[in-house]
Design a protein around this nucleic acid. Structure first.
Length: 276
DNA sequence: CTCTATGTTTAATT
DNA sequence: GAATTAAACATAGA
């Protein structure tokens, strides 16, 4: 589930479920998700706290409790938060359970599910390093071409890898990077430091378009499931929607990467590589 | 059985 | 030391 649009959608739902409520019970025995601290210790620190707000930077969620306590949640690859009744038994892949008492006296139960357990849940009294090191968030801070171009210029990696670097931009994952580069008509293998101002501008517009599209898909779906329709992600071998050419699939930085070799032009600097 | 997966961290290598 | 690359993590689904 987890890129900026999914996490933002999750933030809204968590806030709706939790704001103003108090935690009556907190349970988890999952040492992996709660790493590096002991589950019982973490859970004990939550009982009795009231939830004030839920915020997000990049792919991190920050649930703000009273007494200056923060719960940081990262969804990893397969994490999700759901709301159930307190009677609902433990769900498949349920790792954390928070039972709540709302302002109106009603009880509710919010669960964190995560099959692969790449996600994390941390409790702290200040912002954690992973949160502080994040680059600008496209929604909270906006995207600025000049700043992004400067960050691009400092890296020699492929533009897709640079886009997914969370210290460059917070929240861009494999889907958003793949889709944005298709909209921008730039080959994902292009070195980020080879892009012109105009090309970085195209990447920024591509990111905005991809983010808006995914947020809209989620909003429209409400509580129902939805199917994301992508331009290129997950469409290896299928026809490019722009020129019908079969889409290419490569591995870049260890991640599957789909693109159109005809529409997406490679932008490389002319500087000769060092070495043989 | 094999391959792939919306992410990040860590060890190894250049 | 900085940068890059591969492997690891854990599980489900095609």
């Amino acid at each position: 589930m987890p890129e900026l649009p999914d996490v933002e959608w999750t933030r809204g739902r968590l806030q709706k479920w939790m704001r103003g409520a108090s935690i009556t019970s907190a349970r988890s025995d999952d040492a992996r998700v709660l790493r590096p601290r002991a589950p019982a210790v973490v859970m004990r620190s939550l009982v009795g706290r009231r939830i004030e707000s839920v915020s997000r930077r990049g792919k991190w969620l920050r649930i703000e409790l009273d007494h200056g306590v923060y719960v940081f949640s990262h969804l990893g690859m397969t994490g999700e938060w759901v709301e159930r009744s307190t009677e609902e038994p433990t769900l498949r892949a349920e790792r954390v359970r928070l039972d709540l008492r709302r302002a109106d006296g009603r009880a509710a139960s919010v669960r964190y599910l995560d099959a692969r357990r790449f996600g994390r849940l941390l409790v702290a009294r200040e912002d954690i390093l992973e949160w502080r090191e994040l680059g600008p968030d496209p929604l909270a801070d906006g995207l600025r071409v000049s700043a992004l171009r400067a960050a691009f210029a400092r890296r020699r990696r492929a533009v897709k890898e640079t886009l997914m670097d969370q210290t460059v931009l917070a929240g861009v994952g494999n889907i958003l990077a793949t889709e944005a580069l298709f909209y921008a008509r730039i080959d994902p293998r292009s070195r980020s430091d080879a892009l012109s101002e105009a090309q970085v501008g195209a990447v920024v517009r591509g990111l905005r378009k991809a983010i808006r599209k995914e947020l809209a898909t989620r909003e429209r779906a409400g509580d129902e499931g939805w199917t994301d329709v992508f331009e290129v992600y997950g469409r290896k071998g299928q026809a490019c929607r722009r020129c019908e050419t079969p889409l290419e699939h490569i591995v870049l930085g260890g991640r599957g990467t789909t693109f159109c070799r005809k529409c997406q032009v490679r932008r490389n600097s002319r500087v000769v590589e060092t070495g043989a």
